[in-house]
Write a protein that binds this DNA or RNA. Structure first.
Length: 565
RNA sequence: GUCCCAGUAGGGUAGUGGACAUCCUUUAGGCUUGCGGAGCCUAAGACCCGGGUUCAAAUCCCGGCUGGGACACCA
């Protein structure tokens, strides 16, 4: 609804500006705490026309003609600003849209565009850890939002199965006696894999072991079927464990794309051959490189080693070419350490004449107070441990508040609250901001975190449990807290649009918190069940709307909306 | 050393040219004979430093300082 309102104010303003004799493209409309939408256009025109901005604003205002069927209620000038306010029709329409569309409310029209969104894609060397823990959560939230915004989304995990690290693990399974490994801390396959990874990395300092590992890698690339089977087994074991972890926080993938597929089907070679023929290619110390100084990159992009084998980023070019064959837009969620590689990759795509480039969401790593996490060194906080601790902590809270509940019910709610708290805690911060992991902070379910939003939803459900929804008259809703709530709910589709466009998932978290806050203020000041007649029916309908929008918002965040907690 | 990103109340965080800088936490005080107090209200407290551009800078530019990342024939 807000999107229509915004478009309407835009065209109203454009024609009024023209009628008042001014010329400008932009309408400088923005959301404002002073009005539903506000324009600072007079300030922009002032220097050009050498008139006081307030006068210009008044002149424009006089030319604004609000049409009969409009969502604009009134327009006012305050100082240099032109402020637009919604009308009753807007509010009523919002309520009826939500009531009718229900779980579809917020979904934007189908765009008929395919999107491939790649996220997580960590090396399959061990369990997921908190250091890169933002990746799946950012990725999954964006996937949900993009679907809601009308894209056909295919979510992919790019499996780095050709790395020397995997060869190291394969060597480990072949040569290390399991009895000398540290005890398996958790009965999960990825935790088993990482024991071998750490131990065989130590062993690899021995040159004989090192060359055995390199030989394995060579045989994997040259299609030795026995070696392929071994690699596959190791990688699948690891991925299976990671999958189990991510399922706990509602994250799954449509496809797992193995890096080796592009080597085996020859597309990597084709890409290299094509790049080799371009003017950017040259041989440096026997290796094929791209000179990207033309694109402002100092560093040569090394495509192949001396022995002709390809490197990780080279193979990634082939993957991206394939992605663009299968999608209209391509989005990657990656750690900030990939920035240079992605710049190089983008240049290669330009050189290949693709015409399209991936959009990349970079996030900063979560570090520990004493430094960064490393799987190899074993200085990680595993996501599994964080989720377990969050669950424990949630259980304590639930038990404190609802001691009378059955044990199963307490555990079920703890799960919903604990997993939601973790997701929200991570998604609420802008991806480029750095985070330091501290147990006390991570498990401190801050007041306006996920439980706050879930609680608002549970309250709404509780009211609705005690009464029946009937036909209602939206004109009954006139209290300031009621109007505020409707206006906030009207923003939801716009939030979906903005998050999908800017790829900024934390904005959704901010919205969720504001929506819950607005509902709580309504709840505190406006009686529903104690109201009578038409007023009661209208307020019940409003509570139902709030319940719907809270649930839809939580769904996009991958967080469950409990009916009670 | 060079390049990229970040720096906002005691801690965390939103805002990326415009109207009193958002919210949580903290501290102090208040609210329930209201539908679930995991709630609501009030107050205290911040734009890293120094220049510049602009009618207007937390926001843009230059130079510092601090933290993270990159600078591989690793992935």
């Amino acid at each position: 609804m807000f999107i229509q309102f915004k478009n309407e104010t835009k065209s109203l303003l454009q024609s009024a500006v023209k009628a008042a004799g001014y010329g400008t493209e932009d309408t400088y409309l923005e959301e404002s705490s002073y009005a539903d939408i506000s324009s600072s256009i007079a300030l922009k025109l002032a220097p050009q026309y050498k008139k006081p901005p307030a006068n210009i604003a008044k002149e424009i205002l006089q030319k604004i003609q609000i049409p009969a069927k409009s969502y604009v209620g009134r327009v006012e000038v305050q100082g240099a600003y032109i402020n637009f306010y919604v009308n009753r029709r807007f509010l009523n329409q919002t309520i009826s849209s939500i009531s009718e569309e229900r779980e579809e409310y917020g979904s934007l029209p189908k765009k008929n565009k395919r999107a491939i969104l790649e996220h997580t894609s960590v090396n399959p060397t061990g369990p997921l850890h908190v250091g890169r823990g933002r990746n799946p959560i950012i990725g999954d939230t964006l996937a949900r939002v993009l679907r809601c915004a009308g894209y056909d989304v295919d979510v992919q995990y790019y499996v780095n199965d050709m790395g020397r690290q995997i060869a190291t693990i394969v060597w480990g399974y072949d040569n290390i006696d399991p009895n000398i490994l540290p005890k398996l801390e958790r009965d999960k396959s990825d935790h088993d894999v990482v024991r071998y990874y750490r131990k065989s990395t130590e062993a690899a300092s021995n040159p004989e072991v090192e060359s055995a590992i390199m030989q394995l890698l060579g045989e994997y690339e040259s299609d030795n079927p026995i070696v392929i089977r071994k690699f596959k087994k190791v990688v699948e074991r690891c991925i299976e464990g990671q999958k189990q972890t991510l399922e706990r926080i509602n994250i799954s993938f449509d496809k797992y794309i193995w890096e080796s597929q592009f080597v085996r089907d020859g597309t990597v070679n084709k890409v290299v051959e094509r790049l080799k023929k371009t003017k950017y290619a040259r041989i440096k110390d026997g290796a094929l490189v791209l000179d990207l100084t033309h694109f402002g990159l100092e560093k040569d992009f090394v495509l192949t080693r001396l022995d002709g084998t390809t490197l990780y980023t080279t193979r990634d070019i082939a993957y991206h070419v394939w992605k663009f064959d299968n999608a209209d837009i391509v989005i990657n969620v990656l750690g900030e350490d990939q920035k240079l590689a992605m710049d190089q990759l983008k240049c290669a795509l330009k050189i290949l004449g693709l015409g399209r480039l991936p959009q990349i969401v970079f996030y900063s790593f979560v570090s520990l107070p004493e430094g960064k996490m490393s799987t190899r060194k074993g200085t990680t906080v595993d996501l599994d441990d964080l989720l377990d601790e969050a669950l424990e902590r949630a259980y304590i809270e639930v038990h404190k508040r609802r001691p009378e509940l059955l044990e199963d019910e307490k555990r079920r709610i703890s799960e919903i609250v604990g997993m939601g708290a973790v997701r929200f805690d991570i998604i609420k911060v802008a991806p480029e901001k750095m985070m330091t992991f501290r147990w006390e902070d991570a498990l401190d379910f801050e007041k306006q975190g996920a439980p706050f939003i879930q609680y608002s939803h549970a309250r709404a459900c509780s009211i609705l449990n005690k009464a029946k929804l009937k036909k209602f008259n939206p004109n009954m809703l006139v209290e300031p807290q009621e109007i505020e709530l409707i206006r906030k709910m009207a923003m939801f589709p716009n939030v979906v649009d903005v998050v999908a466009h800017d790829l900024k998932p934390h904005i959704l978290a901010t919205y969720a918190r504001e929506l819950a806050e607005t509902f709580n203020q309504f709840y505190r000041f406006v009686p529903v069940l104690k109201a009578e007649g038409d007023l009661r029916d209208a307020r019940l309908a409003l509570v139902n709307c709030a319940r719907i929008v809270l649930e839809n918002t939580l769904n996009l965040l991958g967080i469950e909306a409990p009916k009670s907690m």
